[in-house]
């Protein structure tokens, strides 16, 4: 979806204003630390995946997404997922008091289990039967799509022509994973010259974007 999160090439946000690296704390406030940990810990309950978690943050009014700080968006997304999966109710969230049983058999990670989940990771690569349709050197176009669903094809690249640079194998496809269907598609690194993305007046550089096969059409017409 083209929500407030799809920021590539948007204008008017001003300078980056980075804090000096040596002075920047990892968290700027105690509540950020708590929101980070709560989001990670509830994610470990296995009731939603990473794309559903991203989509929960994206499904906000764009003004809210842009006005809130990063961890405020995390908090909003986590609250939404907890309610939608029935782990907590709206009433409980408002009152702060537990009044209902969640009714699910869940394995709640202790410290050791949490550490293990963090250090073992969860690879997105999968073996699939069908061979890749594109190879390094192919010219492709990113399909234009207007969808409310979660997607990782950024708006600024849609309709643009690029060159396949590398095939990463097949990875879980976010658009389907967000609907709870962890199917995999071939993933490619596709290179776009800046003039293709932004027109002839752009400073010269290249952007490489990771794009899944269903996002792409082969330029010679054989791809689709």
């Amino acid at each position: 979806m083209r929500g407030g999160h799809d920021l590539g090439g948007r204008q008017g946000f001003g300078p980056v204003n980075p804090e000096p690296e040596s002075e920047e704390p990892i968290f700027h406030d105690e509540w950020e630390r708590r929101v980070f940990a709560l989001t990670m810990a509830t994610g470990m309950l296995g009731q939603w995946n990473i794309d559903q978690s991203r989509h929960a943050r994206e499904r906000q009014h764009p003004v809210a997404y842009l006005e809130q700080s990063y961890y405020e968006n995390w908090l909003a997304g986590t609250e939404k997922l907890l309610i939608e999966t029935g782990l907590i109710s709206e009433g409980e969230l408002r009152s702060g008091a537990a009044t209902e049983k969640c009714g699910k058999e869940l394995r709640i990670p202790d410290a050791e289990a949490a550490r293990k989940i963090l250090t073992s990771g969860g690879p997105a690569a999968r073996e699939i039967e069908n061979p890749p349709r594109f190879a390094a050197g192919n010219e492709v176009i990113v399909k234009r799509r207007h969808t409310l669903r979660h997607t990782r094809a950024p708006d600024y690249a849609q309709g643009c022509r690029g060159l396949v640079r590398e095939h990463h194998g097949a990875h879980i496809f976010p658009d389907a994973n967000c609907d709870g269907e962890p199917v995999a598609h071939h993933l490619y690194s596709v290179e776009f010259p800046s003039r293709e993305l932004w027109g002839g007046g752009a400073e010269p550089f290249d952007v490489l974007i990771d794009l899944w096969e269903p996002y792409l059409t082969l330029v010679d017409g054989n791809g689709e």
Partner: peptide, 14 residues
């Protein structure tokens, strides 16, 4: 309170 997260796990994550 609902037993959905353990404080020790939150500490380990942080």
């Amino acid at each position: 309170e609902k037993g959905l997260v353990k404080p020790e796990a939150l500490d380990a994550i942080i």
